[in-house]
Design a protein around this nucleic acid. Sequence first.
DNA 1: TTGGTAGTTCCATACTACGGAACCTTGTTC
DNA 2: GAACAAGGTTCCGTAGTATGGAACTACCAA
Lengths: 273, 273
Amino acid sequence: MELPKYRKKAAVTSPTGTQAVDRAAQLLIEVARHRDPVTFTELITASGLAKSTTSRLLAALERNGLVRRDLTGRFSPGEVFVSYAWRGGAEADLVSVAQPVLAALGEETGETVNLGVARDGGLVEQIAQVDSKYLIGGTNWVGLRVPLHCAALGKALIAFGGAELPGGHLEQRTDRTVTSRAALADELTAVRERGYAVTVEELEPGLVAVAAPVFADGGIVIGALSVSGPASRLTTAVIPAAASNCMAAARSLSVLLGHDQPARGVQHAALAS
Amino acid sequence: MELPKYRKKAAVTSPTGTQAVDRAAQLLIEVARHRDPVTFTELITASGLAKSTTSRLLAALERNGLVRRDLTGRFSPGEVFVSYAWRGGAEADLVSVAQPVLAALGEETGETVNLGVARDGGLVEQIAQVDSKYLIGGTNWVGLRVPLHCAALGKALIAFGGAELPGGHLEQRTDRTVTSRAALADELTAVRERGYAVTVEELEPGLVAVAAPVFADGGIVIGALSVSGPASRLTTAVIPAAASNCMAAARSLSVLLGHDQPARGVQHAALAS
DNA sequence: TTGGTAGTTCCATACTACGGAACCTTGTTC
DNA sequence: GAACAAGGTTCCGTAGTATGGAACTACCAA
């Protein structure tokens, strides 16, 4: 009886002519995705590859600075990742990754759409925007920073752990701004239950907004997506619909960023069956 | 006359059994290294690969979320990078990338060695440390944040554009702290010329330190490396030697992070000759 | 010493990645 | 608006690179 030198695979593996690259990419993603260093054995089981193949591919990745092994032989993202992250290019890239999602949400709701991220000092900054289709709508808010507690974006961030409410006085922006920490805590609980945050004239009279959190790999909240408009259009009757669109968009963006994406690549998914 | 189907290469290409992965890694690094999106053609010339091969490899990288193409077809780092950068894992990874360099510098000088990065509010935080070999030396400073203007790490950061001096009053920590902006500006010019910063009892009486900047890809300053000790040991006579060691270590770390590294991978370097 | 675990190297094999050419798409020039 | 150019993708037969099993090394524990 002869043993086949190559195991025949049941599932068709990528007919794209890039098997090795796909496999290496999967290994790299597996390393980049985890918060803690990953062991060689974990990578073998995660990828389903042969020891020798995994060893060879990882050596190639390491040689190129894409992964790094610590003293115990475990793998972490390499210098290329570290260097990229420190360079600060990620914010610009986040904006461009998000742009299509914002555009779609703007199309659906017709209102001003913003992507916000937490900043030091209890602020949230809008880093991308799609303008309202109406004549009355938001001006350009990109670069604008507002307190977390009176913005929908800010509430969404705090509620899901993407920002922390600073100590001290909570500024009373309008007569509807929530400045009691107890009331705010109750509201944040509601935000977590609903999945979205609302502000009704708490930041500026006549301004209503809803916002939902955006997650990256590993469930970390990196920002929030908001829909804002005048109180005359965003009435209590239409807020739920806008919020629903907003949450769906936030979820899409999260998936784009690798959150809860079951199998990112092409091959090996079938092998698990 | 027959045309060879495969072009014979003069230089031996990676005898490691990972040609495709190495090539893909080079393309990925080329994309991650640049601040601005890179075009397909630029990648072809940079890699020296055939159009078809480049197209296939880039498609594989894109499919796996490692690169992304914008509307004009140019390439940026993909969601995997964006997600990694936002997760904040880069700081821990920087510490572990830097650890061997710090250890070597500590071995050479015998003094306390620190890696510092800029924080909001005109502060510098020490994120990694190697302790002095002497009984009198620095305590554990990891996590400690001090004003930029009176720390060697801070001066090195400001001088090379890695941090900005905040407006307002410059705190007088000791009677030797430089609090005049004009005097500080002069000193920063000297730092740029020398390549390293010095503080002599400007942060705490009896404490002397030298520091040199650490660069990442593209010349961005991401942190600084310092050597600190008591004024009794770090006298004006030995400061230049310590500074020289410190600068060499900072340069090593910069190279590790991809700064000015002529050819990171294995192949293609030979093709340029 | 023996056994076990973790990972690397070797090797013949055969399948995957190769590059040239054809082809497609988009934008530009008369 | 036809012809051209530039940028990029798909196709294809071929060859040489990636493959996985086995042998091997290194380290640790009992």
